[in-house]
């Protein structure tokens, strides 16, 4: 098992610090979900982990070797990111097939047959120019590059943006199939948490340039509770716990909290339900807003 590790990663753009002393260890052979609000630092973190962006401070290693300018490390990683339709000097006139041909040229394990199957599956016109693609089709191209690269560590940054429900389900099934057949590591950044949560073996939650949680998804959700009941009973039951969000309607109150361990008994006066990853993340974001 390998480890893609980032230690004390700091990234500054001028006076703004986008990533603040991030320590992260990503073990190979797992599917990670990276979630965070817009501007939290997800893309910046991923681009630094893959040496596509230099860190201001800190180191990134893969199995102990620096990733920066390291062929051995870079050959094991694919970071398929959002494709720009517009460049600094005009539109991106590359055709899809030219873009994929570039990917074929650089990814040592590129599977051309698989790429062709994916082109057919997602019904994309490879002769079309990137500037003319819809948002969904752009996502399809990044998915094709990621999957056909057959890279040991495959990172996808918001791969389902703009995809319809059928295409999204196709993508999730493809990731599961690839993982089951090859044991590849996937790190998927997404805002559509509810759908993708079942894929994630481990979840990384990033906010304000800091990693808040990096944990086994099931373990995290086992510690999350939705406590509801009368306001008085809920307040009594949740006291001493980290409550992220509460909602009160009349005398009825709901609280989302994260305990230190699973299986907590909050008493009979309140009703306990599990919390989905999306709802937990939403509660964390609301809490952060209130804190700000």
């Amino acid at each position: 098992m390998g480890v893609l590790a980032g230690k004390n990663i700091v990234k500054k753009y001028g006076k703004e610090t986008v990533l603040k002393n991030i320590d992260i260890n990503l073990e190979t052979g797992k599917i990670y979900g990276l979630i965070g609000r817009n501007g939290a630092g997800k893309t910046t973190l991923l681009s630094i982990l893959t040496a596509q962006n230099p860190a201001t401070e800190g180191t990134v290693t893969l199995d102990g070797e620096a990733v920066w300018e390291n062929e051995k490390a870079l050959s094991r990683i694919c970071y398929s990111r959002e494709i720009s339709q517009v460049t600094m000097l005009g539109t991106n006139n590359l055709k899809v097939k030219e873009y994929l041909a570039t990917a074929k040229a650089f990814y040592a394990n590129w599977d051309e047959e698989y790429a062709k199957e994916l082109i057919k599956l997602f019904k994309i016109d490879a002769g079309k120019r990137i500037r003319g693609l819809s948002k969904g089709m752009l996502s399809v191209v990044t998915i094709i590059v990621a999957l056909a690269s057959k890279a040991e560590i495959t990172i996808l940054d918001e791969p389902v943006a703009g995809l319809d429900i059928v295409a999204r389900e196709q993508f999730y099934n493809l990731v599961i199939d690839e993982y089951a057949n090859t044991g590849r590591t996937f790190i998927i950044s997404t805002h559509i948490i509810e759908e993708a949560a079942s894929l994630f073996e481990r979840v990384i939650i990033i906010d304000g340039g800091e990693i808040k949680f990096e944990e086994n998804t099931e373990d995290l959700l086992a510690r999350a509770y939705r406590v509801s009941g009368s306001a008085e009973a809920v307040d009594k039951a949740v006291s001493g716990y980290k409550v992220y969000n509460t909602e009160t309607i009349g005398g009825f109150k709901v609280a989302i909290l994260l305990a230190e361990e699973p299986g907590i008994d909050f008493g009979e006066e309140v009703h306990i339900e599990p919390v989905s990853l999306q709802n937990l993340f939403y509660a964390m974001c609301k809490s952060a807003e209130k804190g700000a």
Partner: peptide, 20 residues
């Protein structure tokens, strides 16, 4: 060549090429 630094090289860098 005005395009090269931001478009072509950006794509190649994003696909794992080394800067040197």
């Amino acid at each position: 060549s005005l395009y090269a630094a931001t478009l072509n090289d950006g794509i190649v860098l994003s696909m794992g090429a080394r800067r040197k």
